[in-house]
Protein backbone atom coordinates (compact mmCIF):
# COMPACT_ATOMS: atom_id res chain seq x y z
CA UNK A 1 0.00 0.00 0.00
CA UNK A 2 1.33 3.39 -0.92
CA UNK A 3 0.76 6.17 1.57
CA UNK A 4 -1.85 8.66 0.38
CA UNK A 5 -1.28 12.32 1.07
CA UNK A 6 -3.62 13.22 3.92
CA UNK A 7 -5.01 16.68 3.40
CA UNK A 8 -8.53 17.83 4.23
CA UNK A 9 -11.06 17.43 1.41
CA UNK A 10 -13.07 20.30 -0.09
CA UNK A 11 -16.01 19.46 2.16
CA UNK A 12 -13.84 19.17 5.27
CA UNK A 13 -12.25 22.59 4.64
CA UNK A 14 -15.62 24.24 3.92
CA UNK A 15 -17.38 22.79 6.96
CA UNK A 16 -14.49 23.44 9.31
CA UNK A 17 -14.72 27.09 8.17
CA UNK A 18 -18.45 27.12 8.86
CA UNK A 19 -17.98 25.46 12.27
CA UNK A 20 -15.23 27.84 13.38
CA UNK A 21 -17.20 30.87 12.19
CA UNK A 22 -20.40 29.79 13.96
CA UNK A 23 -19.67 31.10 17.50
CA UNK A 24 -18.91 34.57 16.09
CA UNK A 25 -22.49 34.79 14.85
CA UNK A 26 -23.50 35.49 18.45
CA UNK A 27 -21.90 38.88 17.81
CA UNK A 28 -22.78 39.25 14.14
CA UNK A 29 -26.50 38.50 14.55
CA UNK A 30 -27.27 41.36 16.98
CA UNK A 31 -25.18 43.68 14.78
CA UNK A 32 -27.30 42.74 11.75
CA UNK A 33 -30.48 43.41 13.73
CA UNK A 34 -29.11 46.79 14.83
CA UNK A 35 -28.22 47.68 11.26
CA UNK A 36 -31.74 46.84 10.09
CA UNK A 37 -33.13 49.19 12.74
CA UNK A 38 -30.61 51.98 11.99
CA UNK A 39 -31.32 51.84 8.26
CA UNK A 40 -35.02 52.53 8.70
CA UNK A 41 -34.31 55.13 11.39
CA UNK A 42 -32.03 56.99 8.93
CA UNK A 43 -34.91 57.23 6.44
CA UNK A 44 -33.95 54.44 4.06
CA UNK A 45 -36.72 52.26 2.68
CA UNK A 46 -36.87 48.60 3.82
CA UNK A 47 -35.68 47.55 0.33
CA UNK A 48 -32.70 49.94 0.41
CA UNK A 49 -31.72 48.77 3.89
CA UNK A 50 -31.91 45.08 2.97
CA UNK A 51 -30.09 45.46 -0.36
CA UNK A 52 -27.31 47.48 1.24
CA UNK A 53 -26.36 44.34 3.19
CA UNK A 54 -25.51 42.53 -0.04
CA UNK A 55 -24.27 45.53 -2.11
CA UNK A 56 -21.85 46.86 0.53
CA UNK A 57 -21.65 43.76 2.79
CA UNK A 58 -19.56 45.40 5.51
CA UNK A 59 -21.03 45.94 8.96
CA UNK A 60 -19.05 48.96 10.13
CA UNK A 61 -19.22 50.70 6.74
CA UNK A 62 -22.98 50.17 6.49
CA UNK A 63 -23.54 51.61 9.96
CA UNK A 64 -21.38 54.64 9.18
CA UNK A 65 -23.17 55.10 5.86
CA UNK A 66 -26.64 55.22 7.41
CA UNK A 67 -25.46 57.30 10.38
CA UNK A 68 -23.95 59.97 8.13
CA UNK A 69 -26.69 59.79 5.52
CA UNK A 70 -28.81 62.92 5.60
CA UNK A 71 -26.46 64.89 7.85
CA UNK A 72 -23.46 65.32 5.51
CA UNK A 73 -23.12 65.58 1.69
CA UNK A 74 -23.02 62.34 -0.33
CA UNK A 75 -19.32 62.60 -1.32
CA UNK A 76 -18.30 62.97 2.36
CA UNK A 77 -20.31 59.85 3.16
CA UNK A 78 -18.45 58.04 0.37
CA UNK A 79 -15.03 59.27 1.59
CA UNK A 80 -15.83 58.26 5.16
CA UNK A 81 -16.92 54.77 4.20
CA UNK A 82 -13.87 54.32 1.96
CA UNK A 83 -11.59 55.31 4.85
CA UNK A 84 -13.23 52.79 7.15
CA UNK A 85 -12.82 50.18 4.43
CA UNK A 86 -9.13 50.68 3.76
CA UNK A 87 -8.36 48.04 6.38
CA UNK A 88 -9.72 45.43 3.99
CA UNK A 89 -6.76 46.10 1.70
CA UNK A 90 -4.57 44.96 4.59
CA UNK A 91 -6.65 41.79 4.98
CA UNK A 92 -6.42 41.30 1.24
CA UNK A 93 -2.62 41.60 1.35
CA UNK A 94 -2.40 39.19 4.24
CA UNK A 95 -4.57 36.49 2.62
CA UNK A 96 -3.28 37.03 -0.95
CA UNK A 97 -0.16 34.82 -0.72
CA UNK A 98 -2.43 31.84 -0.02
CA UNK A 99 -4.97 32.59 -2.75
CA UNK A 100 -3.15 34.36 -5.56
CA UNK A 101 -2.67 31.21 -7.64
CA UNK A 102 -6.44 30.63 -7.85
CA UNK A 103 -8.40 31.44 -11.02
CA UNK A 104 -10.36 34.68 -11.16
CA UNK A 105 -13.71 32.90 -10.69
CA UNK A 106 -12.48 32.00 -7.19
CA UNK A 107 -10.70 35.25 -6.33
CA UNK A 108 -13.71 37.45 -7.13
CA UNK A 109 -16.23 35.77 -4.78
CA UNK A 110 -13.60 35.23 -2.07
CA UNK A 111 -12.73 38.94 -2.16
CA UNK A 112 -16.42 39.79 -1.82
CA UNK A 113 -16.66 37.52 1.25
CA UNK A 114 -13.52 38.91 2.95
CA UNK A 115 -15.11 40.56 6.01
CA UNK A 116 -13.52 41.20 9.43
CA UNK A 117 -14.94 38.08 11.02
CA UNK A 118 -14.34 35.72 8.08
CA UNK A 119 -10.77 37.03 7.74
CA UNK A 120 -10.08 36.65 11.47
CA UNK A 121 -11.07 32.99 11.48
CA UNK A 122 -9.59 31.97 8.13
CA UNK A 123 -6.20 33.68 8.54
CA UNK A 124 -5.75 31.55 11.65
CA UNK A 125 -6.28 28.38 9.61
CA UNK A 126 -4.06 29.57 6.74
CA UNK A 127 -1.18 30.55 9.02
CA UNK A 128 -1.29 27.90 11.72
CA UNK A 129 -2.47 24.71 10.06
CA UNK A 130 -0.92 22.52 7.39
CA UNK A 131 -1.39 24.01 3.92
CA UNK A 132 -3.84 22.03 1.79
CA UNK A 133 -4.84 22.19 -1.88
CA UNK A 134 -8.41 23.12 -0.88
CA UNK A 135 -7.65 25.64 1.86
CA UNK A 136 -9.58 28.34 -0.04
CA UNK A 137 -12.75 26.37 0.73
CA UNK A 138 -12.19 27.38 4.34
CA UNK A 139 -12.67 31.07 3.46
CA UNK A 140 -15.66 30.09 1.34
CA UNK A 141 -17.12 28.42 4.45
CA UNK A 142 -16.49 31.27 6.91
CA UNK A 143 -17.56 33.90 4.36
CA UNK A 144 -20.74 32.13 3.26
CA UNK A 145 -21.96 31.50 6.80
CA UNK A 146 -21.35 35.15 7.68
CA UNK A 147 -23.10 36.34 4.51
CA UNK A 148 -26.20 34.22 5.16
CA UNK A 149 -26.36 35.27 8.81
CA UNK A 150 -25.90 38.96 7.89
CA UNK A 151 -28.73 38.89 5.30
CA UNK A 152 -31.15 37.04 7.60
CA UNK A 153 -30.49 39.31 10.58
CA UNK A 154 -30.71 42.49 8.48
CA UNK A 155 -34.13 41.40 7.20
CA UNK A 156 -35.18 40.43 10.73
CA UNK A 157 -34.04 43.83 12.01
CA UNK A 158 -36.02 45.62 9.28
CA UNK A 159 -39.17 43.61 9.99
CA UNK A 160 -39.07 43.30 13.79
CA UNK A 161 -36.61 46.08 14.69
CA UNK A 162 -39.18 48.39 16.15
CA UNK A 163 -39.92 45.81 18.85
CA UNK A 164 -36.29 45.51 20.10
CA UNK A 165 -35.86 47.61 23.29
CA UNK A 166 -32.83 49.94 22.95
CA UNK A 167 -31.70 49.10 26.52
CA UNK A 168 -30.61 45.67 25.25
CA UNK A 169 -27.56 47.55 23.83
CA UNK A 170 -27.22 44.99 21.03
CA UNK A 171 -24.66 47.17 19.23
CA UNK A 172 -22.22 46.31 22.03
CA UNK A 173 -22.04 42.77 20.63
CA UNK A 174 -19.71 43.88 17.85
CA UNK A 175 -16.75 45.14 19.96
CA UNK A 176 -17.26 42.02 22.09
CA UNK A 177 -16.88 39.84 18.99
CA UNK A 178 -13.62 41.55 18.13
CA UNK A 179 -12.38 41.24 21.75
CA UNK A 180 -13.03 37.50 21.48
CA UNK A 181 -10.89 37.43 18.30
CA UNK A 182 -8.03 39.73 19.37
CA UNK A 183 -7.29 38.60 22.94
CA UNK A 184 -6.36 35.00 22.07
CA UNK A 185 -3.97 36.12 19.30
CA UNK A 186 -1.98 38.44 21.60
CA UNK A 187 1.12 36.28 21.95
CA UNK A 188 4.35 38.16 21.30
CA UNK A 189 5.39 41.22 23.28
CA UNK A 190 5.25 43.11 19.98
CA UNK A 191 1.54 42.15 19.65
CA UNK A 192 0.81 43.99 22.90
CA UNK A 193 2.74 47.03 21.67
CA UNK A 194 0.77 47.00 18.38
CA UNK A 195 -2.48 46.70 20.34
CA UNK A 196 -1.62 49.54 22.76
CA UNK A 197 -0.48 51.87 19.98
CA UNK A 198 -3.61 51.26 17.90
CA UNK A 199 -5.76 51.85 20.99
CA UNK A 200 -4.15 55.22 21.80
CA UNK A 201 -4.25 56.52 18.21
CA UNK A 202 -7.86 55.41 17.73
CA UNK A 203 -8.89 57.56 20.69
CA UNK A 204 -6.78 60.69 20.16
CA UNK A 205 -7.47 60.56 16.41
CA UNK A 206 -11.24 60.88 16.86
CA UNK A 207 -11.47 64.54 15.77
CA UNK A 208 -9.81 63.80 12.40
CA UNK A 209 -12.02 64.15 9.32
CA UNK A 210 -13.71 61.28 7.45
CA UNK A 211 -13.09 58.75 10.21
CA UNK A 212 -9.46 58.60 9.11
CA UNK A 213 -8.51 57.59 12.67
CA UNK A 214 -9.41 54.01 11.86
CA UNK A 215 -6.76 53.57 9.18
CA UNK A 216 -4.19 55.75 11.02
CA UNK A 217 -4.62 53.67 14.19
CA UNK A 218 -4.38 50.44 12.19
CA UNK A 219 -1.22 51.54 10.35
CA UNK A 220 0.30 53.01 13.54
CA UNK A 221 -0.28 49.77 15.44
CA UNK A 222 1.21 47.69 12.64
CA UNK A 223 4.31 49.93 12.45
CA UNK A 224 4.82 49.98 16.21
CA UNK A 225 4.49 46.20 16.38
CA UNK A 226 6.87 45.61 13.53
CA UNK A 227 9.46 48.11 14.78
CA UNK A 228 9.46 46.59 18.26
CA UNK A 229 9.78 43.14 16.72
CA UNK A 230 12.84 44.35 14.79
CA UNK A 231 14.37 46.04 17.85
CA UNK A 232 13.83 43.01 20.07
CA UNK A 233 15.18 40.68 17.38
CA UNK A 234 18.25 42.92 17.17
CA UNK A 235 18.73 42.59 20.92
CA UNK A 236 18.07 38.87 20.71
CA UNK A 237 15.09 38.84 23.10
CA UNK A 238 12.07 38.68 20.79
Amino acid sequence: MSPTPSHPSRQQEFWSGVRQELPLQLGVAPFGLVFGVLGLAAGLTPLQTILMSSIVFGGASQVVLVQLWGSVPGPVVGASVSMINLRHALYSASVAPYLRALPLRWRLPLAYLLTDEAYAVTINRLRNETPGPFQHYHLLGTGTLLWVCWQITTITGVVFGATIPPEWSLEFAIPLTFIAVVVPILKRRADFIACGTAAVISVIGQPLPWNSWIILAGMGGIMAGWLSLRIMAGRGDA
Partner: peptide, 25 residues
Amino acid sequence: LPDWSEDVLSFVPVAVLTAIIVPSV
Protein backbone atom coordinates in the same frame (compact mmCIF):
# COMPACT_ATOMS: atom_id res chain seq x y z
CA LEU B 1 5.81 40.29 -1.60
CA PRO B 2 9.11 41.20 0.07
CA ASP B 3 10.29 39.01 2.95
CA TRP B 4 9.56 41.55 5.65
CA SER B 5 5.92 41.81 4.58
CA GLU B 6 5.01 38.62 6.42
CA ASP B 7 6.14 40.14 9.74
CA VAL B 8 4.35 43.40 9.01
CA LEU B 9 1.10 41.70 8.01
CA SER B 10 1.14 39.50 11.11
CA PHE B 11 0.12 42.63 13.06
CA VAL B 12 -2.91 43.40 10.87
CA PRO B 13 -5.62 41.59 12.88
CA VAL B 14 -4.44 42.90 16.26
CA ALA B 15 -3.90 46.51 15.18
CA VAL B 16 -7.00 46.98 13.01
CA LEU B 17 -9.48 45.20 15.28
CA THR B 18 -8.14 47.05 18.35
CA ALA B 19 -8.73 50.31 16.47
CA ILE B 20 -12.38 49.29 16.08
CA ILE B 21 -12.85 47.95 19.63
CA VAL B 22 -11.44 50.80 21.72
CA PRO B 23 -13.46 53.74 20.35
CA SER B 24 -16.68 51.71 20.35
CA VAL B 25 -16.16 51.11 24.08
